[in-house]
Computed example of a mutant assay.
Amino acid sequence: MSNATTAAKQPIFDAGDVGNQAQGFVTASIAWVQAYWLQILIAVGIGAAIVVALHAARRFGSKLCQRPRALNGWGMVVGKAIARTGNFFIVMLAAKLVSGYSAAPGEVATTINFLFTVAAVFQAAVWVREIILGAIEHRTQSEHYSGEALLSAMGLIRLLVTFVVFAVALVVVLDNLGVNVTGLVAGLGVGGIAIGLAAQGIFADLFAALAIIFDRPFRRGDSISYDTASGSVEAIGLKSTRIRGIDGEERVISNKNLLNKEILNNTQRNHRRAKFIIGVTYSTPPEVCSRIPAMLKEIVEANDKIFTRAGFTGFGASSLDFEVQFDSKGPDYASFYDGRTAVGIAILKRFNDEKIEIAFPTQVNMMAAPDGSVVMPYPETARPKSEGVTA
């Protein structure tokens, strides 16, 4: 290993040389004050002004916390992070900014740089933690997501975020001190993997709950459908979501399994569509059939529904088939249901008035003699005179 590499691995402070370094630091500081006292006084004044300005910024952040509606709530998140700015960071930032102007000696500059690095790294960790937790709390405090389960989950989330953020900060500080952090990082990685494997089910549902909060595929009170089930969302918890089924039952499904399914949010519909397939008898005249689509359109519009389309769809086994589609505004199922009933009854009444017969399935069974000839379904003596008998 080269000398440069060996030097890079040496810590800044060697335990055996602490006394010599402290004596050198004091000697250099006294000489520096005697030689640059005027610049030091000016730097102290500037540093004091910087400290006052940073304290004013911190007070401004505290005021933002008292106005939850500022910037749609995000101002409170940022203000809370600013309000957590520490005095040690403020002082070291001011010292770092003015140390160059006051021509600080190498020992003093090195000490300021070291303390500023420690203060800046841990202050950044505090800001990141507050922003992450504030963003999560901002979402969970919505009336659609509030609940004891999610609020209690904040304790676990706060613990995990704090551990991760400050673990990273500690590694950064130790690396700046010249400590070999490879083993520490590897140990943290192995420990994290072990914890993750042991509680992967809990973490999967926890992250799924956070995905529901941030992505908002549905909210509490929404009517949703998934697989073959439907219901109204009653509670979104840390591990599971509770849905009240249309038959009154309570369905409990884990957040992870629920998000793996295709979810239909019926509350977010902008309309509901209904469709009727109507078959008329083959004896209906063609000119009457050509008027049926226009009749259907008139009926739909007369019932204050949005007409989509109507027309002939095909030749059925025992009917001429027509189809009509129409929409009902909004997601309300009761209004849609009543409107569909009204349109259906109006179609039946109009067809009765127009003497249009609605077809129903019919079937004619023919019998055959042993030689394969058709056996008439009535006796020969009862054959109608119109058919006649050829001699």
Rank of each mutant, 00 (worst) to 15 (best):
M295P: 01
L188P: 05
A229W: 06
S62L: 13
Q21C: 05
E323G: 04
I46K: 01
M92R: 02
G183I: 13
L206R: 01
V44R: 00
V164D: 05
I236K: 00
G314P: 08
A57S: 09
H271C: 06
F122R: 01
M367C: 09
P384F: 14
G191T: 04
D17R: 11
I263H: 03
R383Y: 10
F89A: 07
I358G: 02
K9N: 10
D227E: 12
S318F: 14
K297D: 08
V324I: 10
A169W: 04
I42S: 03
A56H: 07
G231L: 01
T27I: 11
A317T: 12
L259Q: 00
G178M: 04
V33F: 15
L264T: 14
I278K: 00
R244G: 07
I195M: 13
N3I: 15
A53I: 09
G191H: 03
H55Q: 12
R309M: 10
M154E: 08
L320E: 00
K96T: 14
S373N: 11
P285M: 05
T162A: 07
E323I: 08
K261Q: 13
L97F: 11
L93Y: 09
G201L: 09
R58I: 09
I356L: 06
Y378W: 12
Y145W: 09
D14Y: 07
S290F: 11
A149W: 06
I12Y: 13
D175M: 08
F13D: 12
P377D: 08
S240V: 14
H271V: 08
Y226H: 08
E137T: 13
V280W: 03
R129S: 06
V126S: 07
G192K: 01
S318K: 06
V343A: 03
A125R: 00
V165L: 04
L170E: 06
R129A: 00
V121K: 00
Q10M: 15
T162M: 00
R158Y: 02
P285A: 06
A204Y: 05
Q23F: 12
A391Y: 13
V181C: 02
A104P: 01
G221C: 06
C65R: 12
Q200S: 14
E250Q: 11
S318T: 15
A342P: 06
R272A: 02
R67M: 13
V128G: 08
G221T: 03
S318A: 12
E262I: 08
